[in-house]
Every structure is written in C-alpha cells, then in structure tokens.
Amino acid sequence: MTVPPLTADTVLRRAAGTAEVEHNTGVVVLLLDSPDCRPFELTGGGVGIWRSLGRGPRSARGLVEEIAAGHEVDASVIAPEVEAFLEDLLRAGLVENEAARS
C-alpha cells in the first residue's frame, strides 16, 4: 500500500470499517476489509492514540499535543514515536489520510 508521507499537518481518521475489542494488554483491531483477516494488537501509548482517533479526525500535530498533555511530557520528546506509530497505522490501513480521501 502506498502511503503519502506523514507531516505534522496530516489529518488522520480511523478507517471506515474496523472492529475492535478491549484486551487485557491493549486493544485488538481488525480492519474488516483486510485481505488477510489478521487483527492487530495496539498496546501501551498506541491505545491512547487509537482512542483519540475514535473521537474524530485529528492532525498528527494535534495528536502529539494531546498525548503529551495527557502524560505531562514535552511534545517534541514524544513526537517521533507517535509519528512512527501513525505511519504504522497508515500502512496497516487502520487509519486514513483525510486529504487522500477527498
């Protein structure tokens, strides 16, 4: 899957058609149209990012700031990790680039 480069201004939303269950170590998410029917497990900080996206589309920068505020850390410290995770979500098809949809 070709994924447009992620920037701080990229607005992301959860892909339409996902199923998810809470798990004792995180959240298990299945993309309902995934060609191989393989669920992904989101753990640690990934759970918070997924939940934030569940409240509606967010820019990458907005997500970083939201997570930073929630954990009382500097946004610049967590930005690389959050952005890497968002790229994983994009590659897996679990989130979509809002701009690419229109």
Partner: peptide, 24 residues
C-alpha cells in the same frame, strides 16, 4: 503495534461475528 499472534477466544468470537456480518 503488532499482528496478533495469540488471539483469545472471547476477542476472536466478537471480532469474527463483526467480520462475517460486515462481509454478509
């Protein structure tokens, strides 16, 4: 993020029910 290697039955039943319903 990782592909789930050991899916527990409870999660699997919920996800699979949703998955089949979606495809149907």
């Amino acid at each position: 993020m990782s592909v789930v290697s050991t899916l527990d039955n409870a999660s699997a039943v919920d996800l699979a029910s949703a998955w089949v319903s979606h495809h149907a």
